[in-house]
């Protein structure tokens, strides 16, 4: 992390992230009435470690291994032509596929909803799940599409001038959710 985050304030601490994920794991199991036929798919980049953590927690609660993978949506985005072509992230669908299963999509921040729409389209080309649910660590509002999350770690009212930054141990070396002014950094996670 070369960027200066000193102007950002912490909105979720390491402990709070951990508790949120545990709660979400329980919610997923409760909603699904068990762990049967669950497939957890993280959206790169930070959705992937979150998906793994969620799967681990569900597995430890239910005592069964939970299939977990990654779904890159880059090639399904509606804003491809607004930026230079981006490097693709890894897509990794667990061996059993998604047909007839309940897929839980996991992302770090839910904002405009465009990433999730791209993920739903991508999922369409992979198979036909029985149901698709959405789990996000932070819902910051400002939806531009009729999309809502089923499981939310924290609802965080924000201004569009603000930027939400999720830091994870696996990627960033520490767990933290930060909120800061857009002008303090380059626009990222903009709609």
């Amino acid at each position: 992390m070369s960027r200066d985050l000193s102007d950002f304030r912490t909105v979720l601490s390491e402990d709070e992230i951990s508790r949120a994920l545990s709660r979400m794991a329980h919610e997923v199991v409760e909603r699904n009435k068990g762990a049967a036929d669950l497939v957890i798919l993280g959206i790169p980049s930070r959705g992937v470690p979150l998906a793994q953590r969620l799967a681990t927690r569900i597995a430890s609660v239910e005592n069964v291994p939970i299939p977990v993978g990654a779904l890159d949506v880059t090639m399904y985005r509606d804003d491809l032509r607004l930026r230079p072509a981006r490097a693709l992230e890894r897509t990794d669908i667990p061996a059993g596929g998604v047909d007839g299963r309940t897929v839980v999509l996991v992302d770090d921040v839910l904002y405009s909803g465009r990433t999730i729409r791209a993920a739903l389209t991508a999922l369409d080309d992979i198979g036909r799940p029985h149901a698709v649910r959405l789990a996000v660590l932070v819902d910051r509002g400002h939806r531009e599409l009729p999309i809502r999350a089923d499981h939310v770690g924290k609802n965080l009212p924000t201004s569009m001038r603000e930027n939400v930054k999720v830091l994870l141990e696996e990627v960033d070396g520490r767990d933290s959710v930060l909120l800061g002014d857009v002008s303090a950094t380059r626009a990222e996670g903009t709609p």
Partner: peptide, 10 residues
């Protein structure tokens, strides 16, 4: 080469 922005946008 083709998926990204045209030069103008970039």
């Amino acid at each position: 080469m083709l998926a990204g922005a045209d030069d103008d946008v970039m």
